[in-house]
């Protein structure tokens, strides 16, 4: 089975006014929206700019808005949106500056992520048991040591929560849900008092947790169940506790 679908694609270049192009593509029944975008590129317009890499919700590069809502098109089926002949509107994320077509400038976002300092691997919190052998000490079996399993952080830095965030829309200087969530994760991990103080300072900044209007759009739209809104609330409790010596 194949699906015929029309994409109403946002087109933009810095020296041109934005417009929408209509692309008719045919994709397999089980195709995800990213496959349809790639077909539009392959069959219709090789100048179409879009970001993609892993196609399984790991890299976070492909995030766009489909019919106005932020999604990772690599894991959302085309079928979900089919409604007669109605086209799917594909647009870039909001609250980022535009580079071209679906591509936005993520530099500012990654600078904030870097400021949070969150390392993307951590010992697992999974309930599976067992301890593997680590071989990274070299090939000598006598040197192996026992370490716990590790995992990548759930956040894939896709930028969806920034796009959906009304506070971000009001001020792009806001530290933003993903990076605040990263601060909370990092605070959870680190015991170094100086580092903790520095992280709390970032959260307590005028562009930090107090700007959040608690719209909870971040938690609502996050494809990875990171729950940034809850993290922001946890950071507020931490700041209170530090200032007044109560709570967590």
């Amino acid at each position: 089975m194949a699906l015929n679908v029309t994409l109403r694609m946002f087109r933009y270049r810095p020296d041109q006014s934005a417009r929408y192009d209509m692309f008719k593509v045919t994709v397999p029944d089980a195709a995800n929206v990213l496959d349809a975008i790639e077909q539009a590129w392959a069959q219709h317009d090789r100048a179409l700019m879009f970001r993609h890499a892993c196609h399984h919700a790991s890299c976070g590069t492909c995030a766009v808005r489909v019919n106005g809502r932020e999604v990772l098109p690599c894991i959302v089926p085309v079928k979900k949106y089919l409604d007669g002949d109605k086209p799917l509107t594909i647009e870039p994320l909001k609250n980022f500056s535009l580079v071209g077509d679906l591509v936005v400038d993520v530099a500012n976002f990654f600078q904030k992520q870097a400021a949070s300092g969150l390392v993307i691997t951590r010992p697992t919190e999974n309930k599976l048991e067992g301890k593997p052998i680590a071989y990274d000490q070299g090939l000598d079996p006598a040197s192996v040591e026992t370490v716990p399993f590790n995992r990548f952080e759930n956040c894939i830095e896709c930028g969806i929560c920034l796009s959906a965030c009304p506070t971000m829309a009001a001020s792009v200087k806001f530290f933003g849900p993903a990076s605040l969530a990263a601060l909370e994760r990092e605070l959870d991990k680190t015991t170094d008092p100086q580092r903790r103080a520095r992280l709390l300072e970032l959260a307590d900044d005028e562009q930090g947790v107090w700007r959040c209007h608690s719209a909870w759009e971040c938690t609502e739209t996050c494809p990875q169940n990171v729950r940034p809104a809850e993290a922001i609330m946890a950071l507020r409790r931490r700041i209170f506790a530090q200032r007044f010596g109560f709570g967590k």
Binding site: A53, C54, S58, C59, G60, T61, I120, L128, E129, G130, K131, P132, I133, Y135, D136, F152
Partner: peptide, 26 residues
């Protein structure tokens, strides 16, 4: 089976090697 409880319980042998996982884009 204790380390990986969701493995097929009928396995006849298991050998551990230093495979890993990377993030291709990063």
């Amino acid at each position: 089976l204790k380390i990986e409880p969701f493995l097929n319980p009928r396995i006849k042998a298991a050998v551990q090697v230093p495979d890993g996982v990377f993030e291709p884009w990063r």
